[in-house]
Amino acid sequence: MGFQESATPDPARRVFVSYIDKSREYYLAQGFGNPYRWAYNTEIPFTPLAKPLSESRIGVITTTSLWTGQDHLDLVDRPPKHAYAAPCDPLPARMFTMDLAWDKEATNTDDLGSFLPVTALKKLAAEGRIRDVSPRFYGVPTEYSQRKTNSQDAPAVLEYLREDGVDATLLVGL
């Protein structure tokens, strides 16, 4: 496979991985003709906290899906994904992640806390750092359709957050 033998990066190359470069070259090598065009924005919206964190309810948003009993689901059989909200208490034992392009050779997603920081936030709520964690966490699918994210999924999650009185959010992409 041409794996790098050394444990240290090659300083003749950029150490930080460019996933835009990597995925473009990889899919071109797989014969996909049209490189994916990633979102590029120079204007950035910005909303400061309306109140101190100690008085704020925090919500967690994930790109993973609710587990439906299978770790492996063939691409052909995967139904289209939609935004969703699910209870934080109890948290699911696991999430479905195999459809996402995380590094399946280097790591795993068996520990929910490694990508869904609900338990960590609950601990910080117990310390008084935040008021509390939203009773639900939220899912936003990533299916490489920026149009669908902007027109359907992001507005749907905004509605869930408003229903739950969430003041600020952590969004965790795999």
Partner: peptide, 21 residues
Amino acid sequence: MSLTARHLEANGIPTVVLGSA
């Protein structure tokens, strides 16, 4: 995920994206 963050932020909800890419 960043696009969702931008949508929320534009609608009054502050966001932090956690990521490795």
